[in-house]
Design a protein around this nucleic acid. Structure first.
Lengths: 217, 217, 217, 217
DNA sequence: AATGAATGAGATTTCATTCAT
DNA sequence: AATGAATGAAATCTCATTCAT
């Protein structure tokens, strides 16, 4: 709907720096999401942005910097979206549910950003592990906090069958995996998607809280 | 003890083709796992393999082919490992549990293969989606079959709160995510890891089967 | 105390043209002396000068012109310094001695200018040979005149063992070489430096004048 | 007369590495001597060498390495030439004379090498000071040793009017300067050139040894 | 008078790929 | 069967220079 840099922005001239920077970042996210860090070329970024290469280097630095700035911006956006979606005054399960919905809405509305964050950032030899893992870690911590708060509230101790962080990791992985799946099945609403996960995870989690345990055999 | 291609294999001469091919593939997996598809160089592969570049091209084709063959071989190995681990005569939950353990054992024993399959193959812009997604799909289908068989056995229809494939996707994602997490927390046994997932997923799944449902509010 | 262009001159505005030109030239000499003609960048010059690049082009022309103007200004300064130092009414040896002292004083006080003149101007493939060689030639001619005047005064003809111009060239080379050496041994006074040269050259020269000659064997 | 890489060597194919390396170095010396380090382009080197750029990088490394190797090779050659020319069993003055002649012969026969060593290597911001200064220092030390040996042999102490190292520096500078001058006056023989210098320097030096001194006024 | 914004052109360097032996 | 030698093509990045305000 809004102009997100899909088409070369008509090669407008003499824009203020902030605007150009946004244009370039938009283009870069697009290109990186399509090809990944290494296969993306600065030439394509400059084409898509409708700006000559020297501007990119002048404003955003070398390719690595550019990528890092993409990651940084989109990570901040995603986190902000989730944070706004969660309502801290609600009970844990509702917080989780709203958070998931916000996450899926973001993925739906910013497919490219999500692709860059989820797929492309992993491949660059730990070079950008910092940026992305920080995001992931924050997400996991957030979930872990919810889980633990819910758990302790209901008297769940530290059991062999359960590990807060690991559970959070698994949940985040499941959520991400579903997000990817969703990209190819867009006919499901974000609410349904979130419900599925809640039904899978929350019910199981509640069983644990109540002392039910699955054991081999 | 086992030759994993760590050291250049002493530049032996006149080996039968099959052996050379294995040498090269081993080296390629190693190099791709370290740098990813694009950043990996054929020069490094040839160095690590202790084989000249023309041999690589003669035996395994261009870089793309080489990568595809890496993916193919490791995917087959992983699938084989899981298939061998699962005992089809057991009840679904035990099948799932054994499958997960086999999966984690494979990851532990073939970190490089897992890295190539999980991380590096994603970045190449859908070029190798075929190879990897096929594997993933087979894994998901396998899980989905288990889930559905268990579900139908207990009379669960197609409810709004539930989707077999999506459940499988989520489960696979959770398993993968935990695998990654495990790489940094190697002091947990594969059995424990698998148990965590079972407790998270299976219990929740059972609730669904029994008609329990989580709903917002 | 003196403004040597060390710090960006605070980006003052609306200065008269002559002042701006001096600012820019000072900066340019500094930058050229640090990096040489090719490695110097107009960006750095503009930064150091505290003036935008378009001003440089407007006032002093393209990079080549700028360099030529640097050379020209510093060459004129050096010549002026030497000319002022020499007292034409003195006998040749004293003229030479005072000239050398003036030269070394200039080098000490304008290291950057000297660097640009001596080192950087040589590398630009004869492009600025004109400017610099003119200076050098004037210096050599000046010395040669002294030498010849002293020689003819004492009846020295054109001998095989002697060539006025060549002697001058050698003397100038020795003086330059000592100047460079001096940059790393600043604890010697300009008088001492000049004395060394006089003792080396003048004595030898006098011997020649008197008919003494060194011959192989 | 001999093929020194003047013309592209007919693009011969599949030469052994050592030969190619020599070809490339020859071309590089030529190009660097024409344009200096910065203005020289790897493209031109590759053209002149009759070899594609990748070969240059494969065999001799990046531009900096290439330049350093040029300097290194030519410095070694020059030193070798001088060393061979000097006959250590002769008295100091004859050693100096033969050394100078050898030096001028080298300059005459390897103008390009001399240009690279003398002019171009100075401009590269001290980056190659190591290589070149080492050479210069060795030359100066060699001269200084001669001077000192001659001086002490005749009882000259450390006087204010005299400094061994400084004298050597001056002499080397004079020799270099004459070498440059010679490039434009090739009708003088190397013997004559060397004689001039000997007459200028050695006589003056002998005066000093004998206690004669020039003093201002 | 002065400059932020902008770029065409060209530099170095790397890589996948193939001959010729 | 095996490889050292070789390259076309393309990537990243920089710089001198100018426009539009």
């Amino acid at each position: 709907m809004t102009d997100d840099g899909q088409r070369p922005p008509a090669r407008t001239r003499r824009l203020p720096r902030a605007v150009r920077e946004r244009q370039i970042l938009d283009a870069a996210v697009q290109v990186f999401s399509r090809h990944g860090y290494h296969a993306a070329s600065m030439d394509e970024v400059s084409d898509v942005a409708g700006v000559s290469k020297p501007m990119i280097y002048a404003y955003l630095g070398a390719k690595e910097d550019l990528f890092a700035k993409c990651i940084g911006r989109e990570a901040a956006r995603l986190l902000e979206a989730v944070r706004t979606g969660v309502h801290a005054e609600l009970p844990p399960d509702m917080q989780l549910w709203h958070g998931l919905r916000a996450f899926y809405r973001f993925v739906a509305e910013h497919r490219e950003a999500w692709t860059v964050l989820h797929r492309q950032a992993l491949t660059v030899g730990g070079q950008f592990a910092g940026e992305v893992n920080a995001l992931r870690k924050r997400a996991i911590d957030l979930v872990a906090a919810l889980v633990v708060s819910a758990g302790t509230r209901q008297g769940l101790g530290e059991a062999a069958e359960f590990s807060g962080p690991a559970l959070a990791v698994a949940l985040v992985g499941a959520a991400e995996s579903l997000a990817d799946w969703w990209l190819d099945h867009p006919d499901v609403s974000d609410g349904v998607l979130a419900s599925w996960l809640m039904n899978l995870v929350w019910l199981g989690f509640n069983d644990l809280v109540e002392g039910k345990v699955w054991r081999p055999q």
